[in-house]
Design a protein around this nucleic acid. Structure first.
Lengths: 164, 164
DNA sequence: CTTAAAATGTTATATACTAACGATTGAATA
DNA sequence: TATTCAATCGTTAGTATATAACATTTTAAG
């Protein structure tokens, strides 16, 4: 009963973290190559740190790490890398946490939506055509054209609820 | 003067702005009286400024205004008033803008959801049981217990789209 | 090679928010 | 009415988040 829950979007069982990071970086390399974008050393390292952390990661935590490694990072160093990664669709910003998380490519064509566990700080990026459709209907009713959706659902994941 | 769009949740036609502010403050007075909360001068003024602006309003804009009026406001002056108003449900925070807007009491029991026009900066608070239900189903599927929803849809309102 | 654009380094500053503690106010009641 | 305790507010200081502006370096294209 202490095991991680099965069949959950938060499920980490069978998760090879090293492979997960590696895959994310490989996907980033491919995407940048395809789009003619430059995944420079700093940008790559920032993306890697975000995936290593595997939780919403703060800009200044990245800054401190990079500084420890290279010694000469200032805020713009990190924010510029983050801006690049956001524009490339390789990370998402969690507005309600002022933090950043890797895009897990699980949301397909829809807008990204996040379940955020306040207990373990993990985030699940979920697809939901039903939510997208409902929002599209509301927007249409209002004559509103959607550019971007910020959908961040805070609460408690199954595993943390079980732990009490 | 900004043109008033027609037939929209953004619709401001037939909108008597003075009455709108007055009504919001009257609702606040009533609610505080009912709940035994104290709508002090600062809190009342902050709420009034937010409604006067009728757009997402930044804490430091409030601070500057209050300072011009009273001369001795510091950040905690404004943030404490904002915390009170948030707790009382009289305003909402728009996370994607780090700004605050009056609660228009239009969302009923559901979680608040916002359509945010990037052109005119106006915000419509929309109810949508369909969205709430779809999210509830997704959460249930994931074994996730929802505490709070941040739903902020950015885009262009009908009036701004028409203006080109 | 040259050069223009992109990326990065660097300094400074703006914006967002909170901790801590003393002073004041106000409502409840001795 | 005086006392008192909690809520509110004033004030100082500090931390966290993010951007402006301009100099320098790197890179890809001509």
């Amino acid at each position: 009963m202490i095991d991680a829950p099965q069949n959950s979007v938060f499920d980490a069982s069978g998760h090879d973290h090293g492979a997960c990071i590696h895959d994310a970086l490989a996907r980033a390399e491919t995407l940048c190559q395809q789009q003619g974008l430059r995944l420079t050393a700093i940008r790559r390292r920032v993306l890697e740190l975000i995936w290593e952390n595997h939780r919403p990661t703060k800009a200044y935590d990245l800054l401190n790490t990079i500084n420890a490694e290279r010694g000469n990072a200032a805020p713009p160093t990190v924010y510029r890398a983050l801006d690049f990664l956001l524009d490339a669709g390789l990370i998402h910003k969690i507005e309600s946490l002022n933090a950043f998380i890797g895009c897990d490519a699980g949301h397909g064509d829809g807008h990204p939506k996040f379940l955020i566990c306040r207990a373990c700080e993990r985030v699940a990026e979920i697809p939901s055509p039903a939510v997208d459709n409902a929002l599209a209907r509301e927007a249409k009713r209002a004559g509103f054209t959607i550019d971007h959706e910020t959908i961040e659902i805070g609460g408690t994941c199954a595993a943390c609820a079980h732990r009490g």
